[in-house]
Write a protein that binds this DNA or RNA. Structure first.
Length: 267
DNA sequence: GTGTCATGCGTAT
DNA sequence: TACGCCTGACACG
């Protein structure tokens, strides 16, 4: 589930194990062989996430930049380590832990300047910039005529929100995805930002996206929610809205599907 | 077994 | 706007 929370969680959990350790790096698949060779045997200094991007910083000052795209996945493995699958782009090992990365859109070696270039293309990250991000978020949207549902996927407006969160956040504040971004009232943008902060944080902590209020599904605790009970709108086309029972609708904006409740999100 | 779809995004047209 | 890239889960027969 590679929206921003996944990368922040990976940075935290992997960092706990790997920071300050000398690592072995290899690319069984071969497509990152040169990069793996360049960092093999180096000390891992820190692991940082920003939006949907992850950076492994090494003692020589270079960074490995990973973007999972739609398919990429990390696995954390413990000894005895299984044979790396042949499609593993990158495997980072220390004595007691191993990071196994397969299917990323991006896995590249960058200089600090290269990292700066990536970061320059990103807007505020709700997890990194909870307090001062709102102003930049609102500014980025203030002149955009595109629908808010589309603008939320623009990583330059807000870094880390993906297709699940955009449907869920808009449902939660009762805003139609089709309103032009520039026409969204400031107090709605503020609620949207604050909710993004809360929800991405919750996702980072739990490792899954759960937006429903337990009262809306008749369960006592969020963590008890089963698959299919955790979201309000995403992938629920035709199913009754959890708040008003109107069938959830879906449509495409720029070739990505968005789901919404026509009654709770008028417009 | 085969086909479809997906939590993303860059590039070409 | 369309396509390509990359993998895995699931529906269907």
């Amino acid at each position: 589930m590679p929206e921003g929370h996944v990368l922040h969680r990976a940075a935290r959990l992997q960092g706990k194990r790997f920071n300050g350790k000398r690592i072995e790096a290899e690319s069984p698949q071969g497509r990152f062989a040169d990069g793996a060779a360049a960092v093999d045997g180096q000390m891992m200094e820190t692991i940082e996430a920003r939006g949907k991007h992850l950076f492994y910083w090494f003692e020589s000052g270079v960074a490995v930049h990973v973007h999972l795209g739609l398919f990429g996945k990390f696995k954390l493995q413990k000894p005895p380590f299984p044979e790396p699958s042949p499609n593993a782009r990158l495997v980072l090992s220390i004595e007691d832990d191993r990071i196994h990365l397969a299917g990323p859109t991006t896995c590249e070696l960058l200089t600090p300047d290269g990292v700066e270039d990536v970061l320059a293309g990103l807007g505020p990250d709700p997890i990194v910039d909870p307090a001062d991000g709102l102003e930049r978020f609102a500014q980025a949207l203030s002149r955009r005529t595109v629908p808010i549902g589309r603008a939320l996927l623009d990583q330059k407006a807000v870094a880390g929100v993906g297709n699940v969160y955009r449907s869920e956040l808009l449902f939660m504040i009762g805003l139609s995805p089709f309103v032009a971004a520039k026409d969204v009232p400031h107090d709605s943008l503020e609620r949207l930002w604050k909710l993004a902060v809360e929800e991405l944080r919750a996702g980072e902590r739990s490792g899954r996206i759960v937006t429903v209020d337990p009262n809306d599904v008749d369960r006592s605790r969020r963590s008890d929610l089963k698959r299919g009970e955790r979201l309000y709108a995403y992938k629920r086309r035709g199913k009754p809205c959890r708040r008003c029972a109107t069938p959830i609708r879906s449509s495409d904006i720029d070739d990505r599907t968005i789901w919404w409740c026509p009654d709770c999100q008028p417009g």
